[in-house]
């Protein structure tokens, strides 16, 4: 209990935390209305654009399957296993980095990880696995084990002038608490299943964002130094989030506040 109060106090310094949740509780009808918005997700435009980019720069699904040395039929399940250790990279990479490798192999200058073209193309590629369950294997090899451990460390390590970690706001103890009118989300498979629902259209930003880009948003707000996209820590965090949401069905693009 004492611990919760301490966390609440340090949070209060960044944003105002309150547990007076009923004031902002959404009705089921409201929640349903927001869920229905997924049918016409503005990010569908960006994902469609991503499909054309994949065709143009990566040879489409056939090109992607060939790059992974699998058949096109195996592609969805394979994509659902990212982040993965890839021999060509000698490290654990996200799907976006794999696409960079393929672009390079095809003689194109790879899109930057933070470019909207990469967000579009990466989202399209991940959407090929829509309906498939996240099936990351963190015990597949020592690289995956290390990536998971680094991700967990990054999630739990207190940083910044407020001494906050991701865990401060995303631990089971605080889920559902209200921070500046927003409920603290459950990132795991029983809640938002973040790794299965990002990339998503971020309504407050009017744009398509990736999971790693979303991590940066929280880092910014909680006054933690922002870690670059694609760095081992970021990929580790993605591995950690994917493990937390393992078993959830991929549904890309998501739609978030």
């Amino acid at each position: 209990m004492k611990n919760t109060i301490k966390i609440a106090l340090s949070l209060a310094l960044v944003c105002s935390l309150s547990y007076a949740s009923e004031q902002f509780a959404m009705s089921d009808a409201d929640r349903e209305m927001y869920a229905e918005m997924l049918e016409d997700n503005p990010a569908d435009i960006m994902v469609a654009n991503g499909g054309e980019l994949l065709e143009e720069f990566c040879g489409g699904e056939a090109g992607l399957a060939a790059f992974f040395k699998i058949s096109e039929d195996e592609l969805p399940a394979y994509i659902a296993g990212f982040p993965r250790y890839l021999e060509e990279f000698k490290q654990v990479v996200g799907l976006d980095q794999a696409l960079q490798g393929l672009m390079h192999k095809n003689g194109h200058k790879p899109f930057a990880l933070k470019s909207s073209d990469m967000f579009d193309m990466g989202s399209y590629a991940k959407s090929l696995a829509n309906g498939v369950k996240l099936q990351i294997d963190i015990d597949a090899n020592k690289h995956m084990k290390e990536a998971y451990a680094l991700g967990k460390l990054t999630f739990e390590q207190k940083r910044g002038s407020r001494g906050l970690s991701c865990l401060s706001c995303h631990s089971p103890q605080v889920i559902g608490g209200i921070l500046r009118t927003q409920p603290l989300p459950d990132i795991g498979s029983n809640g938002n299943a973040s790794a299965a629902t990002w990339p998503a259209y971020r309504m407050t930003k009017s744009s398509l964002r990736t999971l790693q880009r979303r991590f940066q948003g929280c880092m910014n707000n909680a006054l933690l130094a922002v870690i670059p996209l694609g760095s081992p820590e970021m990929v580790g965090l993605e591995v950690y989030f994917t493990q937390e949401a393992k078993g959830s069905e991929i549904a890309i693009p998501g739609l978030k506040r």
Binding site: S27, A29, D30, M33, Q182, M203, S206, R257
Partner: peptide, 16 residues
Amino acid sequence: LKVPEIAENGAVVPVT
């Protein structure tokens, strides 16, 4: 007229 009672974000409020 369908609108949310509580809009989680004023920039995007669904209306049907």
